[in-house]
Amino acid sequence: MDATIRLTVDGTAHEVTVDTRTTVLDALRERLGVTTVKKGCDHGQCGSCTVLLDGRRHLTCLTLAVAQDGAEVVTAGGLGEGEGLHPVQQAFLDHDGYQCGYCTPGQVCSAVGMLDEAKQGHPSHVTEDLEGDTDLTDDEIRERMSGNLCRCGAYAGILAAVREAAQA
C-alpha cells in the first residue's frame, strides 16, 4: 500500500510516495536520491544509516517512513552551513577519522547527536557517578560512539576528531 508523506531533508521539503513497508533509509536513498545516508546492515546493527531525525540521532533503517510523516531529517550532507563543513566533519578530516568513508556520514551524524546528548547531561554505560556531571573522557566518547561500527578500524582518528569537536 502506498502513502504520500512529507519529509524535510537537509532543509529541503519533499513530498514523497512510499510503500508502507519503506524505511526512511530506503525513502531517502531510492525515492529521493539522497545517498548521503548509507546502508550497511539494514537491521540496526552498524550505525551507517544514522541521521538526526527531529534533532535526535536515529537509525533510518529501523524506521518506517510512513510513521515519520512531517519529520525533519538532517544527514551528513546537511550538517554544514552552505558549502562549509560542520566542525565535526572538519575534525574527521583533520584526524583522518575514516578510510573507506562508508560509515563516515553516520559517524559524523552520530557524533553531532551524541555531543548534544552529552550537553544535556545524559549519562552513559561507562559513567561512574550517575548523578555527577558529564565529562567526555576518551572512554565516554568511545562508549557513546559504539553504535557506529567502522570496519576500516579508524576508531583512533574518530576518537581524536570527536574529542576535538567536544572541546571546541
Binding site: R29, T35, T36, V37, K38, T75, A76, G77, L79, G80, L85, Q89, Q90, F92, L93, D96, Y98, G101, Y102, T104, P105, V108
Partner: peptide, 19 residues
Amino acid sequence: LGRVDGPEKVTGAARYGVE
C-alpha cells in the same frame, strides 16, 4: 597530505556502488 577525497566522504557526497 590530507586525503584528496576527504570532503566527499565526510559529507556523504561520495557515491558508492548502487548509489
